[in-house]
Design a binder for these strands. Structure first.
Lengths: 84, 84
DNA sequence: AAGTTATTTAGACATTTATCTAAATACTTA
DNA sequence: TAAGTATTTAGATAAATGTCTAAATAACTT
């Protein structure tokens, strides 16, 4: 869960998750949505990937990113036990 | 929500929340549970307080901390919209 | 009032983080 | 195979973070 909380502790990464909730996208398409360099977005995508909040799949020269809600379930559980 | 994610992005602070879920405690009682200096715990409590994840009340020379689940509701909402 | 206890504030330091530019890698197409 | 496109990796830098010790503040006790 450490990596999940770490990944969520950034506004850009949270925005990326909201984008991917609407539809899966290439790294480039994601980067277009932000006023930030591509390497920076790539770095954010990597942290989301390490936390398993997104999956990625190579499609030719593109890399397609999708949200992975499995880990969000775990976060739900964590919150529930905290609320009792 | 920024402060909430920031506050939750630390194992010590998450542990403090779990302790407070069981029962409210003084700053000193909380500090006893950790192998860390009191000023460090005080700092963690302050971040939790800034995020409104805990409330505090002065009781004589003690300061009593309690968990505040209101903000956790907001986090729930955030998660739900992300899962659609 | 003086001493003791509970907690926070201040200041320092090492580590982590977010960002950038430049370069490298991987794939596609002419 | 050479050129172009998509993405990541490397390396640098400034800012934020977690931790500590020492000192300050506040309240209780004798």
């Amino acid at each position: 869960m450490n990596k999940v909380f770490k990944a969520l502790n950034d506004e850009t990464r949270r925005s990326i998750l909201h984008l991917l909730r609407e539809k899966s996208m290439n790294a480039g398409q994601i980067a277009e949505q932000f006023d930030m360099s591509k390497p920076s977005i790539s770095h954010h995508l990597d942290l989301l990937y390490q936390a398993e909040l997104v999956t990625k799949a190579k499609k030719g020269q593109f890399i397609h990113y999708s949200i992975n809600t499995t880990v969000l379930e775990d976060l739900f559980e964590w919150l529930i036990t905290l609320k009792k």
